[in-house]
């Protein structure tokens, strides 16, 4: 399997935070979700890939070193950053005029088609746009030069479910258009990833906790609900974390089918990505 992005032992140290030896790949034709709490290193990882911040380790994008071939690589990347865009004091037409100068493959026709499709006002300043409209514009701008990679930092945060769904549709369409394309998407709204991602990379405190196919996570991981007596009989190596609730114990297991064969406990639910994330962060070990 070929990869569009490869990170090998990427580190970045700040005064109060350290991104520690992050390694993962973004394969061609896939959507990789970067999850974790706020401030654990998701945005730092994205900024390191884009060479916005300096970092240690190796980052290969489209087969090239991200520092050596920075501008060449960026021609093939579309970026959406949660809190940063061109300017609030320009309009849609001016963005087209600016982007033409930056991207060799900028497609004005495609850009304005999307603008029309999403009914964005051409003559209004971005400052007057709603949060959803702004995000749609950011995404349209990111895909209108036909990039091979989309890098998205919290593209759905603060949006209502209808707009979120529309935006996820754009991503689906983007991947479906060309199987060589990839998306790397950081988010803390994990339910979005259940619908769209192929792999989940979970970062906590600057470390990768797991990097697994989404299907495997959703299919195999489970939450066992049991009484104290039952919990005490469970071996430490057969579960990942547990939470003590008011009347029962909840246990996260990485293979609910195997667990069911070993222990005579009937209540085992599927775990959502959010459940898994919360167990890893808030759960305890024996």
């Amino acid at each position: 399997m070929e990869n569009n992005i490869i990170l090998k032992k990427v580190s970045k140290e700040y005064k109060d935070f350290k991104l520690n030896d992050i390694s993962f790949n973004v394969p061609k034709g896939s959507v990789v979700g970067l999850i974790g709490e706020n401030g654990v290193g998701k945005t730092t990882t994205i900024k390191a890939i884009l060479n916005i911040i300096s970092s240690q380790g190796t980052i290969i994008v489209l087969g090239k070193d991200n520092k050596k071939y920075e501008q060449e690589i960026k021609q093939e990347i579309g970026v959406v950053l949660d809190d940063s865009f061109l300017s609030d004091y320009i309009d849609i037409k001016k963005i087209d005029s600016i982007m033409k100068d930056f991207y060799k493959n900028w497609d004005s026709k495609k850009y304005f088609n999307y603008i029309k499709k999403f009914k964005l006002p051409k003559d209004k300043m971005i400052n007057d746009f709603s949060t959803g409209m702004k995000m749609k514009l950011k995404i349209i701008t990111a895909i209108s030069h036909n990039p091979k990679i989309l890098i998205l930092d919290e593209p759905t945060s603060g949006l209502d479910p209808v707009v979120r769904n529309e935006i996820l549709d754009i991503f689906r369409e983007f991947i479906a258009e060309d199987e060589e394309r990839s998306i790397l998407m950081s988010t803390h709204i994990t339910s979005d990833l259940e619908h769209i991602s192929d792999y989940i990379v979970f970062i906590d405190n600057g470390h990768i906790i797991f990097n697994l196919p989404t299907e495997e996570l959703l299919e195999n991981y489970g939450i066992v609900k049991c009484k104290k007596e039952e919990f005490e009989k469970i071996k430490k190596e057969d579960y990942i974390k547990y939470k003590k609730e008011k009347y029962q114990y909840e246990i996260l297991v990485n293979d609910r089918f195997k667990f069911k064969k070993i222990y005579p406990i009937n209540t085992i639910d599927r775990a959502s990505i959010e459940d898994i994330m919360l167990f890893y962060i808030k759960g305890e070990n024996k």
Partner: peptide, 14 residues
């Protein structure tokens, strides 16, 4: 005010 610094650096420039 637009916090555009990081976005600009994500474009094909330096």
């Amino acid at each position: 005010s637009s916090k555009s610094e990081h976005y600009i650096l994500s474009l094909p420039t330096n």
